[in-house]
Design a protein around this nucleic acid. Structure first.
Lengths: 173, 173
DNA sequence: TGTAATCAGTTGTCGCGTCAACCAATGCGG
DNA sequence: CCGCATTGGTTGACGCGACAACTGATTACA
């Protein structure tokens, strides 16, 4: 029954502590920069980016929630705020009248186009610039391995396009 | 002025997306298990562990906040709740009457002693077991490099002892 | 010694995310 | 075609963390 807990070795503990610290500090750092420079949460930014990358700038709420790794209530609240700010619009889906479609507005596109450079710079200066090319590859593998445990359904594996290499989003204007 | 943003390469973007996903999912997974099995947040667990590892089971609030990487207001709120639950006690520090000392109670010790095995198991099954020894070492280096950027003051570098290899906490009873 | 600046900690307010409850539409078995 | 489960989404209440304002003690400095 009580299968003698295997406590962490010194190496395991050291790596774990650092990972936890990283996981705790990173979101705050991302939010801080985006809030300061664009008035957006990192999550809101991700939502807008996902919509901006969608084929017709439109996505169903459920799909969007899945892509951004959010619960539906959370997305619903965020969507309401974004809509109030004129960054997205919501309207009932014609095909399935239960569903709601969300579309990013021109103002929304403009906002993320303006915000993207600063955000990328933050990502570089806080994370990527600290890593060698080998480490980048290792990070990819390690995070992948952990995510396979943490998120077996790979809901967010779909979360590509986050803000890839180019301004995939048309430079509004 | 507008120094042409260097967008992320495909490799960079892929690694980054995974890291962000990891940072977003990990805290929730830790909280979920601990809340379910011990009624504790991962942060509360960390606070209790830090106190349990302190020389006389006692620590000043500021020191504790630093060790757990929390703001003082946050710790104050959490300490109030923990005290209400009888897991810690607070009393003014004799030497510096501005300061407050927090001590973990026997009930608190008992709780983390009971909770630790399940938590370690979660850490193993969700993270450590997914990694090879080489990857563990790589993770240590990578997280260290990023933390140096993210947390230059290394406030949480002190956060050792998180729940290292043994029941450093005396098996209450 | 007296006054200003700083430190340690608490408290209140606000915003966000979770959870549970709810409504509406769809699909499915009879 | 009718009931019933399921899906899609919204809403409201609650809890936690951030921030700002505040109290009280200590130090610095004149």
């Amino acid at each position: 029954m009580t299968s003698e807990t295997r406590w962490l070795s010194t190496e395991e503990s050291a790596a774990w502590v650092r990972l936890v610290a990283l996981a705790e500090l990173l979101p705050g750092a991302l939010d801080a920069q985006l809030l300061r420079d664009a008035g957006l949460t990192h999550f809101e930014y991700g939502v807008l980016m996902a919509l901006g990358a969608a084929s017709d700038r439109t996505m169903r709420m459920t799909e969007l929630a899945s892509r951004t790794n959010a619960t539906l209530p959370r997305l619903s609240h965020v969507a309401r705020r974004l809509e109030e700010r004129g960054l997205i619009r919501r309207f009932p889906c014609p095909e399935d009248r239960r569903a709601t479609n969300a579309t990013i507005t021109d103002a929304g596109l403009q906002l993320i186009a303006d915000a993207a450079p600063g955000h990328v710079e933050t990502v570089r200066s806080n994370v990527l610039d600290a890593l060698s090319p080998e480490q980048l590859e290792q990070l990819y593998a390690i995070a992948g391995a952990v995510l396979a445990r943490l998120d077996p359904d790979e809901r967010l594996a779909a979360t590509s396009c986050q803000f890839s290499e180019g301004p995939a989003i048309a430079r509004a204007g």
